[in-house]
Design a protein around this nucleic acid. Structure first.
Lengths: 226, 226
DNA sequence: CGCCTGTCAATTGTTTACAATTCTAGCGCA
DNA sequence: TGCGCTAGAATTGTAAACAATTGACAGGCG
């Protein structure tokens, strides 16, 4: 059959998937506060679905670690302590470092240029002074870094980490400052990738994550994973 | 209140949790073949639960990546291609490397001795010639490595990876050979940790993972993440 | 004979209702 | 005041029924 129109296959997203995505977004953007309870009946009414699919979606988020379940009491949005945020950054640094390793072994020139483009977008966002745009650009850089590595495994883990990161950023939005230094760190990583210097890229990435972590937590990270 | 007995908090595991654990075990140990379909009605009857909690458990496994869902058709156990196994090992190496980094920054002497004890258990298992015991000991070493790091994040990801690894080992059980070299690799890692040499430990770990990967896949890994 | 199409059985997806368990809060009582 | 008990409310688990979709198969048409 001639493919006259460029038709993409119709993806029938399952209802639990849709619910999970909406809930993830709501949690990440602070529409539901950390520690607050998600009542089944209320949520089901709000979303216009029945309890079955809703519970399936909740189980997914529980598996991701975004919700904690207390039996016969309900599901609650996680509250991350400083220690847990530090621990999350350990994992995040591990994932992104691995992505860097893969990148420099592949087409690091194209990847580096791609990342530099993201840095430009960050500068643009910084120029407008829009907080949301700045953090969006920040996260876009890191998501792109992992996506360019081509690893599905890394991308999957990373996406859940970015949700948690976004949640932390939303909570501590006031303390989120974009400095020249902040953009320079990203550019440094991109340039190291461009040059194919894996160890340098990883080192800069690790330092960058430590800085980001220090901005998120009250006490500085005592042990770095870099 | 004086803690006279070392009482752990009573954890009332939810039904979906139990189901998920049982299914995970069954998949990991080859009781359900990769690619096979899991019928809701049949499984529910077999496990003695209703479809509700069963579906919730399935969603968890889907989120973990152990099952793939085809809408209106059912859930199937994943079939991993060589490329996917390689990709999984990229992630696994990233996780365990990060654990190594944490280990050498903490009490690396105690950790190293602990790991050497695991190596002894491996030798014992190798002496009996019991295939299951050998792979158990192998996986116990790696799980211990991550557990000793004290990172909940790393441990959580790693546990799902070990399930997938176990599945691969079960499928290709015949080609699983334990050699002197295999034990020596583990001892090398443990000794590097004991000596507090992070880079050496990571390097040896990476080489070890590459070897393990080469045993699992038909074609050798073209790109290492180490 | 080959291809398309309509029907049918099977399975999943969703909703609803109800029973069971457990936590919380309030009350009475020593 | 402190304790135990009880009623209410919430979640959790179960069951049944219905809707929706898929894949297969038989039959008609060119």
């Amino acid at each position: 059959m001639p493919q006259r129109y460029s038709l993409e296959p119709v993806i029938q997203e399952s209802t639990p998937s849709i619910i999970a995505r909406k809930l993830r977004y709501a949690i990440a953007h602070g529409e539901v506060a950390p520690g607050s309870q998600l009542g089944e009946a209320e949520l089901a009414r709000e979303l216009g679905v029945s309890r079955g699919p809703l519970r399936e979606a909740m189980q997914r988020l529980t598996q991701e670690g975004l919700l904690v379940s207390i039996r016969n009491r309900g599901l609650f949005v996680i509250e991350m302590t400083d220690a847990e945020i530090r621990d999350m950054y350990v994992l995040r640094t591990a994932i992104e470092s691995a992505a860097c390793k893969l990148l420099v072994r592949a087409d690091h020139v194209a990847a580096g240029q791609d990342l530099l483009a993201k840095v430009s977008e960050m500068e643009k966002a910084a120029g407008t002074g829009d907080r949301a745009a700045m953090s969006d650009a920040d996260m876009a850089f890191h998501e792109h870094l992992v996506a360019l590595s081509g690893s599905r495994s890394l991308a999957r883990i990373h996406s859940t980490l970015m949700t948690e990161t976004r949640m932390c950023l939303t909570v501590l939005q006031d303390s989120y400052r974009v400095t020249e230094e902040w953009i320079a760190e990203h550019r440094g990583i991109a340039e190291a990738v461009l040059g194919g210097d894996g160890p340098l890229a990883e080192s800069r990435l690790s330092d960058h994550e430590d800085d980001a972590l220090a901005r998120l937590t009250s006490t500085p990270a005592s042990v770095s994973v870099g």
